[in-house]
Each structure stands twice: as structure tokens, then as C-alpha cells.
Design a protein around this nucleic acid. Sequence first.
DNA 1: AAAAGGCCCTGGTCGC
DNA 2: TGCGACCAGGGCCTTT
Length: 274
Amino acid sequence: MPELPEVEITRRGIEPYLTGKRITGVRVSERRLRWPIPLDLAARVTGRRIVRVVRRGKYILIDCSANGHAGWLILHLGMSGSLRIMDARAKAQPHEHFDLLLGKRLLRLRDPRRFGAVLWEGGEIARHPLLAGLGAEPLEDAFTGKLLHAATRSRKAPIKLVLMNASIVVGVGNIYANESLFHARIDPRAAAGRLSLARYEALAAAIKSTLKRALAAGGSSLRDFVHSDGSSGYFQQQYCVYGRTGLPCRVCRTPILQLRQGQRSTFYCPACQK
DNA sequence: AAAAGGCCCTGGTCGC
DNA sequence: TGCGACCAGGGCCTTT
């Protein structure tokens, strides 16, 4: 379930407990995630010092490089994953599949649906197959309406599906795709290749502000990161369209409609979004 | 090349 | 009360 804001808040929450620390081992209780946790992971990471923790799309990347030898732990939370910092003595509960041991503390992955991932990359991180094809980071300055417009000229697919395509822009899942299109007043069914540059500029701005608002809402949970139950899910927020089928539009009172696009639910206001 | 559908997985909700 | 059906979701993979 986590989208970019949730992943970024998680990264910020764990970063202070990881950076500079020595990895003392791993504990794996369930190897079968989205892909199996590599059998040789313990041998790869044990003894390495964590240099920094970064994010690319929804991937959390733990840099363990040392004197010219690249090494990265790749984490993905899937839909139901969460990470917590815990005391090293804490016993694993059901669905807690993986620990990164850090001496007195550990980083624990809980993921009931097991769509998440724990992988290792010993070379250049940007060339990892899961990362190499990723599109623009929506919160970076390089992400603009112009970029979206250029990337969609040949696309006949509905704009909502294009927004959720990680090879174009990363981190925008179903919730924020719906919300961003509402704020940009764009019909989610509109063919991506037929939207004007001006409309893409409105859309890029809406994506940035929607994600930033969610980040701000999640920031309040940072202080309690170690103590929280880690099941934060989505931040307490008022959505405009997501999950509001039949309820009045917050702007014009028209009932919100729901439809299916790419086997996923779309929510929109038929009056505001054209 | 792009689009559409399948698949992975489990917790929660709903109807019978 | 219990059970099965169904939905949610990211993202890769295969097929069209």
C-alpha cells in the first residue's frame, strides 16, 4: 500500500538508526517474498558499515559500499510492508520475515502479503534491473509538465494508467493518481497523448502538491517511528475522490463516480474533471 | 512499441 | 456462526 510519501517517511524514520552503523547479521524467517531473499545475503552484508539510506521510487536503498566495493541492500515494501527499528532482543511476530541486525538494535520488515522484497546489488545500483527502467522522481525539479507532455506524445492509454506507469513517473500509486487528477481537473479517461502542455503543467503541479501534502501529514509520525506499531498504512488525510464513490464532490457537490481502469478502481468527479 | 491481462499474496468485508 | 467469494494493491511478466 505504501506510495512514495509513505516510503519516504519510512526512509527518514529509519535513516538515523542506520547511517554509520555496522551490520552484524541478518535473520530470515520467511524467504518467499516478491522474490526470494538471496541465500547468500548474510555473507554479503555482515560486517559492512552503512553509508547512507536513499530512496528511488518506492525502493529504499541502503548503501553499504566500502573502499571502492559497491554494495546495496534493496528494500521494497510492496503493498503491506513496513519497517521498524527494534531492540535486538525483540522476538519476531507472525509476518515479520526479515531483520537486519545492527548490534543492539535491528531493522525489521513486517509484510503480511509478502509483495515486498529484500535484495542485494553488488555493482552499480542504478543499473539494477529493477531500477534501470524507472522514470522521473516527481518531487525533483526535473519533473515538469514539459517532461510529462514529451513522454506521452505517442500514448493513447488513459492518463490515469500512464501516471501509474513507473517507467514514466515513479511513486504515484492508485490513491495519489486519483487525487492528483482531481486537483488538476483532468478526466482520468483522457488519452494521454491528447492532453495539452498546459494541462500537463497543471498535472505535474498537482502531483507535487498532493505528494508533499501527504509527506507533511506523515512527518508527524516520524518522532514515534521506533515506538509506533509500524502498520501506519496511509496517513490520516482527507481524500477528495479516492474511496468516495457516491459522496458529494468537495468542490461542486456532484456525486463522485467510480470505474475500473486496468483492473484498478478509479474515482473522479464528472463535473470538475473534463 | 504499446496495451492489456495475469500473477504473486493475505487480511478484511460481505452475502448467504 | 461459518464459509466462500471477492476486493485491495505494486509491478513484473507474458501475450496480443
